[in-house]
Simulated scan of single mutants.
Amino acid sequence: MSVLELREEGSIAWLTMNRPERLNALNAELVQALRDYFLGLSARSSARVVVLQGAGRAFCAGLDLKDHAAGSETRSVPEVLEQQKGIRDIMLAMRRCPQPIISLVQGAASGGGFGLALASDIRLATPDARMNAAFIRIGLSACDVGVSYFLPRMVGSSVAAEYLLTGRFMDAQRAQALGLVSRVAPLAELQAEAQALADDMLHATPLGLRLTKDALGFAVDAPSMEAVIAMEDRNQVLCTQTADFREGMQAFLDKRPPHYLGR
């Protein structure tokens, strides 16, 4: 049984973490599978949108402490650093890949699971979803795998400090009130909403979708409005030079679905 199941339906990839008996906790095998998948995505991949979810009653409970503890006393500092980089590389790859990522957060999203949710572009949550920076509750800093980068930018510094300094759980209702998740509903409804969101994204040209994700990511750290607008200007000019742009314009005028070729 694979710890990471992939199902592609057209241009949509449904990616399921599949260790339900361990609440999809991150063991070495799952870390490697997630890392390889997201690092392997490119503009030429068959998938244009990724939906990430967990099998069973949890999204991801974070690092599998039983797996991590095995042999941990004999690991050197360089070995532990390489392990740490292996996990953080997942989040970096999620932000760098051209595909928008929709996460369906069901049940626990703790520690590394919280990081996976935050590294996604869109988060949808079930009513029982609970997210926290669990690292601080097991003798570590709460600032790990990008969480201290993403959370203050998404919910503000005071709220981020509240959850990072305490390790408290954020429930789905507060996450929605803070704008951290876009919708709270039962899982079946979230899966239908993820499908609808992905379908809408596929109305964009491949280049337009890719550059939009890029620009949203860069705009967060841009030094000025002028820098953001300069990036937007570049993106628009690039898009107008493609055959897909001409197809999109014609399809709009003809009132028909566009047929994009990625050119």
Results as ranks from 00 to 15, higher is better:
179 G>A: 03
113 G>E: 08
82 E>R: 15
217 G>W: 12
15 L>W: 02
229 I>G: 03
85 K>L: 12
27 N>H: 15
136 I>C: 14
81 L>K: 12
16 T>V: 09
201 M>V: 06
226 E>Y: 07
121 D>Y: 03
39 L>R: 15
172 A>K: 05
26 L>G: 02
239 C>F: 06
37 Y>N: 02
119 A>I: 06
101 I>Q: 10
9 E>C: 05
101 I>G: 05
190 L>W: 01
189 E>T: 11
220 V>W: 12
163 Y>E: 07
16 T>N: 02
221 D>R: 10
11 S>H: 14
34 L>N: 03
26 L>N: 06
252 F>Q: 11
77 V>F: 03
46 S>L: 08
151 L>G: 01
116 L>I: 00
83 Q>Y: 13
62 G>I: 07
30 L>P: 04
193 E>T: 15
98 P>F: 07
142 A>M: 03
186 P>Q: 08
32 Q>H: 14
40 G>M: 07
120 S>T: 01
126 T>F: 05
89 D>Q: 14
75 R>A: 01
165 L>E: 14
140 L>N: 12
127 P>N: 04
91 M>Y: 11
16 T>I: 02
16 T>C: 04
1 M>H: 12
165 L>R: 15
142 A>R: 01
126 T>K: 03
19 R>I: 08
112 G>P: 01
150 F>H: 13
113 G>M: 09
49 V>G: 07
241 Q>F: 09
252 F>G: 06
236 Q>W: 12
226 E>G: 11
214 D>A: 08
164 L>D: 07
19 R>V: 05
57 R>A: 14
137 R>D: 03
131 M>I: 14
182 S>N: 11
139 G>I: 00
106 Q>W: 02
241 Q>T: 13
243 A>W: 05
29 E>V: 07
185 A>W: 04
23 L>C: 09
6 L>E: 13
115 G>I: 01
9 E>A: 11
139 G>K: 01
